[in-house]
């Protein structure tokens, strides 16, 4: 499906600059994310990947130069899993505070099953491991119909099968016209082409 370039960008960052503790992490960094693109932000630890993600999604509102235009509400997966220990995975997903739509039970079952959590839908989450919590958080990707996904190292503590399942989902989301901006230390095996944004030189390739 040809990517319609004339659409407005789903996310536009104009000349972003951030100084952290006297060190300049990046400056004059501009990027425009259109539907059908997958962006990977690369950089060593401490290069400011997470700070950039927080600026792009709107959590950081002060302390940086430049502007971010966000016409659509992104789906943001951060380092923390946002899974309440007292609620079951199903309740966590159906009553999620990110304001997403109402998911039916079988949608939730299907999403959790694809991440290897079949049978754990209704147990209290405090009985699940940290890795399983991350997978419950990742299940939001399978349920959400948001166009723009901002993922901050989604694959940490996820096993091989989960990573492959998610990578194929990312590819189909991008082919379907959605956009993904993510940071990850692992190389991505995705069928669509990957635009990379390397923070060390602040260069867009």
């Amino acid at each position: 499906m040809p990517i319609s370039v004339n659409d407005a960008p789903l996310l536009a960052a104009q000349s972003l600059g951030l100084v952290r503790g006297g060190r300049e992490l990046f400056h004059d960094l501009s990027v425009e994310v259109y539907g059908g693109q997958l962006w990977q932000i690369e950089g060593a630890n401490g290069a400011g990947k997470t700070s950039l993600m927080r600026i792009l999604c709107g959590l950081s509102r002060y302390g940086f130069e430049g502007k971010v235009l966000r016409p659509v509400t992104p789906l943001y997966l951060g380092h923390q899993t946002a899974v309440k220990a007292l609620l079951s995975p199903r309740e966590n997903l159906q009553w999620h505070v990110s304001g997403a739509g109402l998911y039916s039970d079988d949608q939730v079952d299907d999403a959790l099953a694809r991440l290897g959590l079949r049978g754990y839908e209704d147990v209290p989450s405090h009985t699940l491991s940290a890795g399983q919590h991350r997978r419950v958080n990742l299940a939001r990707l399978f349920l959400s119909d948001a166009c723009l996904w901002l993922l901050d190292e989604p694959f940490t503590a996820i096993d091989k099968q989960g990573v492959d399942e998610t990578q194929s989902l990312l590819a189909s989301h991008v082919d379907g016209g959605g956009a993904v901006v993510m940071t990850s230390h692992q190389a991505l095996q995705v069928s669509c082409n990957v635009n990379t944004l390397n923070l060390v030189q602040g260069v867009v390739s």
Partner: peptide, 17 residues
Amino acid sequence: QRQHPQSCSRGCLLSVP
């Protein structure tokens, strides 16, 4: 296989409560 939104450009988060 969940039906994926074919094209996002026509607006997103259709079922926002």
